[in-house]
Design a binder for these strands. Sequence first.
DNA 1: TTTCTCCATACTGTATGCAGTATGGATGAC
DNA 2: GTCATCCATACTGCATACAGTATGGAGAAA
Lengths: 235, 235
Amino acid sequence: MTTPDSLDARAGATRQLARGDVPVLQRASLREQVRQALEEFIVFGRLAPGEHLAEESLAELLGVSRQPVREALQSLSAAGFVDLRAGRGAFVHEPTAREAREVFHVRALLESDSCRLAAQNIDDDGARRLEVIYAEGHEASQRHDDPRRLIELNRTFHRTMTEIGGNRVSIALVADLERRAGWYLATIITNRAPSSWAEHREILDAVVARDADRARDLMLNHIDHSRDLLEFTGQ
Amino acid sequence: MTTPDSLDARAGATRQLARGDVPVLQRASLREQVRQALEEFIVFGRLAPGEHLAEESLAELLGVSRQPVREALQSLSAAGFVDLRAGRGAFVHEPTAREAREVFHVRALLESDSCRLAAQNIDDDGARRLEVIYAEGHEASQRHDDPRRLIELNRTFHRTMTEIGGNRVSIALVADLERRAGWYLATIITNRAPSSWAEHREILDAVVARDADRARDLMLNHIDHSRDLLEFTGQ
DNA sequence: TTTCTCCATACTGTATGCAGTATGGATGAC
DNA sequence: GTCATCCATACTGCATACAGTATGGAGAAA
């Protein structure tokens, strides 16, 4: 990812036949690839808050034309990663602690509700999936695996829980909020606490026991804990 | 709005100096104007669910080039009004009753929480603003004003309440959800009940009395009522 | 020195061009 | 009649072109 090398040599859209019986694998559009690349650049600090994102130079950097870059920037704007100033173009958004708190608050609302729903909907298959993720995450956190992987596992646990909740609108919103939250944590917080798999264990137990209210409350507290990490940074 | 007449004769962006001391009024970009126009066409049924939105013909209809149309379609896709199928282009989204229920559920979560926050934050100015809106809305609903206006006033009440709550992330999400909800009500429901200003009155009283929990619960029930309208349509 | 004006520069916003792909109907095989 | 194949058509996705605007600094005026 350090050498962007242009996004892809084979830019003329082709398809790949999957080995299994999954019918066809859609190659992502250029604008989607650009979007993901830019989001990574922003999240990992290679593009700093406030920085001006000139379409032409990004296009050159990524080996594409301005068009897909432009569309990617608009998408990132809707997701809160960049700001579009009329006539000035795109700038990396400068998150504030207030905004971070607000995102965590909304996330807590939506995820705790999804957790409540999950406790109502859970079936054996869902319970198994959660157990697998828990086992993996718990072990990885014990071993102090690479932080990138820990973040990924943590996110997988939350995402899966929300998916089991089953409200697709909520699922989509939470996915966005999680990505923003990850950025804030990486940007604002210097030293991130490892995600608490002890709390995940409690939540999981409540969900499997179909104790909806308890599951909801536990998830609420759980996310509030991560939000509390933000409080140290003031303003 | 029936004769799109091209969006604007003076397409070369110019600015207008406001009469008052509001400094400058930014003319919206073409893509934003197109976005709004298309959203109206969709919400008011001029573009029907499932319809293929070919960029060229829309561009011609609106008197602009494909480019701003394309960007507007992508924005509308993010907002849930159109679906983009890779290689096929944009189609007006076909809402389902399930999806509508989900939107109302999330809306209820976010707005009831904002209402709780509003009860904590409210000041004299906020209370005055709410009272004015209530008075206007109550009167209009008594008079059985034009439905379009009733919907507008209803939305204003909710938007103002959310704004007083003060969580900007929530404000932005709720604004999106309200627009979708409005579409669903117009599309799915044949006969929409007038918004209940009696319930608004109760909510407003609780907020002004700073009774946060009661305000929250009332708003939750209030939105559930409108959601219940959806239940008649099955699936 | 300070402030205003003007202009060169860089970049956005919109339009147009072009290559490649999805689709549906015509055609032919069975 | 049914099914597979092929091709014309329409439209997308990306690239490029062009016009117009925001900005910052040079130079003039005070």
